[in-house]
């Protein structure tokens, strides 16, 4: 870990200034925000993230940690802890997929430390990204190549990859937000704005080092999730190599609106399989207006992987992913969901 400058501003205005000051003085010296630190500190110790200036948001952004549900929109402060949100009664009863995606993530200790905003911005677990002694990593050093293609890539993505990067986006919570069409609120040097959550993460293409559409110095302040006929009948299925404290091999967030067994609306998002939070739009289109049963679920699951590209060690993820979609759809359909 290289020495760095640390500040803990007490007001949001000051935070925004300190987040950008460094940028203007020296383009090389990046100011990086610290929330729970469970991604950032880890990567600093590994020498992967080398900020010269760390701006701790924990004093200034405390106002953005509330959880409120007014019957039509769930507002989640970006600094709320994963554990708090996972345990919140409104979240559990009205947005089960959100509660489950959080409580099935990481460990109790991490969930107590980590914030929602930090969770959305967690970095990939690609082993080659996390070890700077591997020279080839386009995400770490643009243009250097990709050590994972041709390396050990069992955990890498099969959807959204490019020939420049195949790193998986491992977060769970993001899949629930994808499925529920969430939006995020931002504050930055140029003021406040909002954007659909689906626009936050960028596919690697030929610029895998550009991961989000955040502008320099911008902070995520809130997450807004609209209520809908599908939110209560929603579920998160996470398939993994051990029972807890492990990233997904494949995960599926499903939200369903049914009339009898007829699908009136459906949302499917996939985790552990793609380079970014991933919505399986074609699979949804195929199901909308049809009966949900083993056959239609299987057909939808196949559709979701139409464009999948497997590497040497991860072809099985396509099959696990398809099974996970079928399982998630049928289990969600079987939920006792009451209209609120």
């Amino acid at each position: 870990m290289q020495p760095f400058h640390y500040s803990r501003p007490v007001s949001l205005a000051e935070t925004i200034v300190s987040g950008t000051q460094k940028h203007s003085r020296n383009a090389e010296a990046t100011a990086t925000f610290l929330a729970g630190g469970t991604t950032l500190i880890d990567l600093m110790k590994l020498d992967v993230m080398r900020p010269s200036h760390v701006v701790d948001l924990n004093s200034s952004a405390r106002e953005f940690s509330a959880i409120r549900f007014d019957g039509s929109t769930l507002r989640l402060g970006a600094f709320a802890k994963m554990a708090t949100v996972a345990d919140h009664p409104d979240v559990i009863s009205h947005f089960p997929v959100i509660a489950q995606s959080l409580s099935l993530a990481a460990s109790a200790q991490l969930r107590n430390m980590a914030t929602l905003g930090g969770n959305l911005l967690q970095r990939t677990r690609c082993a080659y990204f996390r070890d700077p002694s591997w020279a080839a990593c386009n995400k770490r050093s643009p243009g250097s190549g990709c050590a994972a293609i041709g390396g050990v890539n069992r955990q890498h993505a099969v959807l959204g990859t490019s020939k420049h990067c195949i790193a998986t986006y491992h977060g769970d919570f993001a899949q629930a937000l994808m499925a529920l069409d969430a939006a995020i609120m931002l504050i930055g040097p140029d003021g406040a704005r909002s954007m659909p959550f689906a626009s936050l993460h960028l596919q690697p293409g030929n610029t895998p080092h550009l991961e989000t559409s955040l502008r320099p110095g911008e902070i995520i302040t809130e997450i807004l999730v609209p209520d809908g006929p599908w939110t209560r009948r929603s579920r998160y299925v996470k398939v993994r190599d051990r029972q807890s404290y492990e990233f997904a091999v494949a995960s599926v967030a499903v939200a369903l609106a049914l009339e009898g067994s007829m699908v009136t609306d459906v949302r499917i998002a996939l985790g552990g399989l793609a380079t970014t939070p991933w919505r399986a739009v074609d699979a949804e289109d195929l199901l909308r207006g049809r009966r949900l049963n083993e056959a239609s679920a299987t057909e939808a699951a196949r559709t979701a992987f139409a464009g999948a590209v497997a590497q040497a060690h991860n072809a099985f993820k396509i099959s696990v992913g398809q099974s996970a979609i079928v399982r998630a759809l049928l289990e969600t359909a079987a939920m006792e969901a009451h209209r609120g």
Partner: peptide, 29 residues
């Protein structure tokens, strides 16, 4: 079910030499 140190054949390195990636059972297992 869990433990395997993974080798990258290109340089005979271990690529999961840490407790997050080298799987050991947790209580729930």
């Amino acid at each position: 079910l869990h433990e395997q140190t993974e080798i990258d054949e290109r340089n005979a390195s271990y690529i999961n030499a840490n407790l997050a990636d080298y799987l050991l059972p947790v209580n729930a297992d």
